[in-house]
Design a protein around this nucleic acid. Structure first.
Lengths: 192, 192
DNA sequence: CGGAGAAACTTGACACTGACTAGATTACCC
DNA sequence: GGGTAATCTAGTCAGTGTCAAGTTTCTCCG
């Protein structure tokens, strides 16, 4: 928090990640420049590498944070509504609300996929997702429940991806969560 | 076709694109190096730029080709089966069969989205997709037909994306198209 | 209090990249 | 055959990630 220029920045990792999120949200992970982040933070060009090792290390930290936030968001939606449909909406809302995280999380080639923290955070998010889909899956008597959960995941993931990449046609509701709710309810109506 | 080393390569654009597809399929579009492609083709480092302008130009060509192939694949599935479900399966099959194209097509920040050829190819693919989803949309009396088509698109796109990025859990059918067929039929069974 | 050791950061260098310019070579066509 | 356009080469520039070594500051223990 010290604003005066000292040798030690004090909170470099957090600052770097925050700047990285802004940059990624604006131009994607590919265009991310560690040197640019360092400049923004007012430190030397090699400072980020000291904390994150390398580019992949920084993006690993972003992905870990992202999976953690996603797990929280899904669990919260599940707790509040108990409705599997709303868990799906929460998934889309997360993607739209945290575009930078989302842009990194599902591209393992960008980060260190074998990082222990990453694996843990990912597992936690997976659990939240599965727990959210469970009510629907249970109602799917006959059909494979895991298959139903996977279908729901594919639907919201696909919609979020297409939305974020700007590939959806115009004329949709301004709020993507609302649009997703419409899609999902149209698809799942009268079942369960 | 001349194999002897002449000043003119003869078919550089095709060769470059082909090498680019291999490289993208292996390490993603971000890791693509124009200089490396030039080396593989046995030409100088600046030769690719002459044909494609720059990196974005090359990826634009890849995207155009990709949307063309997708349009063909969807139209073919629609023609042969007339089943909207099989059009969705064809979408997944295309993604898995042309991972490099697919990895570029839906990331407009990588290429020149305002390129006329690109816009045309994309429109053609969109039409094929919409035509494929039409039977299903029509059966959705009451529900917005465009909404139904969008839901179907989201489902297959999400599944393909998750599959390609290696984010799906183990235990699925080895053939992604088959897995997608299962998902979609489970979701759409008894409707229409 | 003070000094050792660890942590945070800087400086400098290297190999690599995409992009640009100017020039050399070749194909094409009247 | 000669002129013109297309193709490709060669050289250069600014920018990047990564590494190694040095400097500054913090922390904590005696």
């Amino acid at each position: 928090m010290s604003t005066n220029a000292s040798y030690h920045h004090g909170n470099l990792p957090r600052t770097i990640i925050s700047a990285a999120l802004d940059a990624i949200a604006e131009s994607g992970p590919s265009a991310l420049s560690l040197r640019d982040l360092a400049r923004q933070a007012g430190v030397s060009h090699a400072a980020p590498a000291h904390h994150f090792g390398d580019r992949a290390g920084l993006l690993t930290a972003v992905a870990v944070q992202g999976f953690g936030l996603l797990a929280d968001a899904l669990a919260e939606a599940q707790r509040q509504t108990g409705d599997f449909l709303e868990v799906g909406v929460a998934y889309v809302d997360f993607a739209v609300g945290h575009p930078a995280h989302f842009a990194v999380m599902f591209r393992p080639e960008l980060y260190r996929a074998d990082d222990p923290e990453l694996i843990a955070a990912k597992a936690r998010a997976g659990e939240s997702l599965y727990r959210g889909a469970a009510p629907f899956a249970a109602s799917e008597s006959g059909a494979d429940s895991q298959e139903a959960a996977l279908a729901a995941w594919s639907l919201v993931h696909g919609f979020a991806t297409l939305w974020l990449s700007g590939n959806l046609p115009a004329g949709l509701p301004a709020d993507p969560g609302q649009a997703a709710r419409g899609l999902a309810s149209a698809l799942f109506s009268g079942r369960g």
